[in-house]
Amino acid sequence: MLDLKAVEKDKKSGLPPVHLWHPEFCGDMDLVVKANGDWVHDGDKIKRAKMVTLFSHILWYEEGEYFLVTPVEKVRIQVEDAPFLVTKWRYIDTAKGPAIEFTTLTEDVKVLGVDCELWLEGSEQAERPYISMRYGMKAMLHRNVFYQLVEELVAVNTPQGSGMGLVSAGKAYLFILDE
């Protein structure tokens, strides 16, 4: 099992400095982050939100694989889609104007156009919305969040074209391209 005693948080970000740790690979852990945001260990959903948040804080993405990392251990886990799930959003004021603030199930907070980007991924019949997260990872927007944001769409012009989208912190994000 993973030794979590050595995990200390960076005082500025509130996250451990996972990017500074380079332990040897220790093997695989029976832990799966499901597409619906559940974290499942040995076939059982982890019900303690604080444990899931702790694990999410030591998550590392490398060459298409996910790992839980401490200063002395690195174990591989499985992720079905995205390791983070956006469950809340709200408008906030920023120096660049009104912005959309996202909160994940694990209480990560990202501001669209400031410290994260938004895109759609998948086929035209099944596109899913994602935002960028730390270390090259991504968070999928929960269906309810996506539907709420669709109600906020406005006309936008972007380098990809014109259509309907969102504006956050002065940056436009295209959702529906004008034909």
Rank of each mutant, 00 (worst) to 15 (best):
V109I: 15
Y130D: 01
P98W: 04
P16C: 04
V150F: 08
A169F: 11
T70R: 00
E65I: 05
V33C: 08
L112C: 07
A35P: 02
K34N: 09
T158I: 14
K47I: 12
V32K: 09
K34S: 09
L54D: 00
M164S: 14
Y66P: 04
K34V: 08
T104P: 00
Y66N: 07
E152M: 09
H142W: 12
R90H: 12
V145Y: 09
S168N: 06
F67N: 00
Y91S: 11
E152W: 09
Y66S: 09
G27K: 09
K9Q: 09
F175W: 14
A49V: 03
L149F: 03
R76I: 08
I46V: 11
E8R: 14
I176V: 15
L177D: 13
K11W: 07
K138W: 04
A126Y: 12
D42F: 06
K12R: 13
V79C: 12
D10A: 06
E151A: 15
L20P: 00
M133S: 02
V33W: 03
N157F: 08
V154P: 04
V156G: 05
M164I: 10
W89I: 02
A95Q: 13
T158W: 10
I46P: 04
A169T: 14
A35D: 11
R76C: 08
G14W: 10
Y61N: 06
E65G: 04
H41D: 01
I176F: 15
L118D: 03
V154H: 01
L4G: 01
T103P: 01
S162T: 15
D108V: 00
K12C: 04
A99N: 02
Y91V: 09
E152I: 08
L85S: 01
G163E: 14
R90V: 06
K110S: 06
L85W: 00
V52C: 03
E63K: 15
E73V: 02
P71G: 03
G136I: 10
I58V: 12
L112N: 05
V156N: 06
A6Y: 04
C26M: 11
M164L: 15
I58A: 01
A82W: 03
G64W: 11
P159W: 09
K12M: 10
P17T: 07
S13Y: 01
S56V: 00
E8F: 12
K138N: 11
E107W: 03
P71D: 04
K171R: 12
G165R: 06
G43R: 03
V79L: 10
P98R: 14
D108L: 03
G97V: 06
V154N: 03
S13W: 00
Y61R: 09
H22R: 11
Y61Q: 07
L141Y: 01
K45W: 02
L141E: 05
V72P: 01
F146I: 03
E101R: 13
